[in-house]
Simulated assay, not measured.
Amino acid sequence: MQILILGNSKDVHAAHLREAIAQTGTDVDYLDIAQFPTQLRVSWSPQTSEGFLTLPSGQRWNWQSIRSVFWRSLAPIQVPSLPDDQRQIAGNDAMAVLRTVMQSTSTRWVNSWRAYQFHKEKPRQLGVVHQLGITIPDTLVGNDPAAVLAFAQRHAKVIFKPVYGGAYIQPLTPQHLQPERLQLALSCAPIALQEYIPGTNIRTYVIGDRVYGAEIRSPSLDFRLDAQAELLPLTLPDAVEQDCRAIARALWLDWTAIDWRRRPDGQYVFLEANPSPMFIHFERQTRYPITQALVDLLLAD
């Protein structure tokens, strides 16, 4: 049995989990996509569904012997210097092979290519969760100034953030809505607007059937900006635990961190589910066995 970590040793979470798996006596190594196709060698046959992965170290692993791959991070492929037209073809070919082995081999990906792609469509993620009957914030995405102004007028307080992610939440101010500024911003990129949800930040981790929760105490609008934020273990209501598992299933996530806002009246409002969250700080603060749960998940039949 063999396990791969999608990522490399420079990522502290990848290195942490690799060490934990190695302590079980299991063969484990990194699958660093930045080394493909220059150093990694991949083969796969549509007729037999068999193939091999040869690592830079020279180890040759049969895809059928690889129990799991933990998806920590997907680095860009590194195609050698070629003329632009040839470089594009080479890059497309390399990604086609990677997508194939990620979806067609018997190896279990935690999480899958499908889940990773779905995460990049966060408005759609919100829609799916809403269809489960779980409360989400009133949300608008797009670049229509009239729609943005109408949304802002419907709510006393609004926050905005990139549709794709990758930046922090900010409050929407009257200055943002000045006509020239708004037109310029929306001609550059669409935006995601949400009603501000008063209350407390809650983070839950789902690992297989296990669910762990913590209250995050921070005065910051985005707690990720607050190095002093407190993480307090939390006993979740049974209904919220069930919602966590339902969200993970609906988004094809074997493991995830789900962020919520708990309103003053106790209602939980879904914000986002992350398919590759950081977890070491959360584990150290709460003492929840996140690492062991992930190891168990990756080694499970």
Rank of each mutant, 00 (worst) to 15 (best):
R67K: 14
F70G: 00
A90T: 03
V79T: 09
Q78Y: 05
P56T: 12
E50D: 03
Q86A: 15
D84L: 11
Q47E: 13
F52K: 06
N62T: 14
V79N: 08
P56V: 13
T48S: 13
S65Y: 13
W61R: 02
T54V: 13
S68A: 11
G91V: 07
G51L: 00
V79E: 04
T54G: 09
R72V: 01
W71M: 04
Q78D: 09
A75C: 06
T48I: 06
V79W: 02
D85S: 08
L55H: 09
R87T: 08
S57C: 12
W63H: 10
G51Q: 01
S45Q: 09
N62M: 15
R72Y: 07
S49M: 03
N62E: 15
S45P: 02
E50Y: 00
P80D: 05
D93L: 13
Q78E: 11
V69E: 01
F52R: 08
I89S: 08
P46S: 10
P76E: 02
Q64K: 15
I66Y: 07
T54P: 07
P83N: 03
S49V: 01
P80K: 09
I89R: 14
N92L: 11
S45R: 03
N62W: 12
Q59F: 08
L55A: 10
L53V: 05
D93V: 05
N92A: 10
P76C: 02
Q47P: 02
D84P: 01
F70W: 14
T54E: 13
V69P: 01
D84E: 05
D85A: 12
L74Y: 03
D84G: 00
L53Y: 05
L53H: 03
L55T: 11
W61P: 01
I89Q: 14
W61L: 15
P80M: 09
Q88Y: 12
F52C: 00
E50G: 02
Q64H: 15
R72N: 06
V69Y: 01
Q47K: 13
W61T: 00
D85E: 05
S49W: 00
P80S: 09
I89G: 04
I66D: 07
S45V: 08
S73I: 09
S45K: 06
Q59N: 12
Q59Y: 10
P80E: 10
L74F: 04
P80Q: 09
D84I: 11
R72F: 07
G51A: 01
R60S: 15
G58Y: 14
I66R: 08
D93N: 12
Q88I: 14
I77C: 06
S65D: 15
L55P: 12
R67P: 05
G58L: 15
I89W: 12
G58I: 15
T48R: 11
D93S: 11
P76G: 03
F52V: 06
D85T: 08
V79H: 04
L53R: 01
R60A: 14
W61K: 04
L82P: 04
S73Y: 12
R60W: 11
V69Q: 03
R67G: 04
W61I: 07
L53N: 02
S45H: 08
S57I: 07
D85K: 06
S73P: 02
P56K: 14
E50H: 07
N92V: 10
A90D: 03
S65A: 15
L53S: 00
P76Q: 01
L82R: 07
Q47T: 05
A75H: 07
A75Q: 10
I66T: 06
G58M: 15
Q47Y: 12
R72G: 01
S49N: 06
L74H: 06
G51E: 03
D93C: 06
T54C: 11
N92G: 07
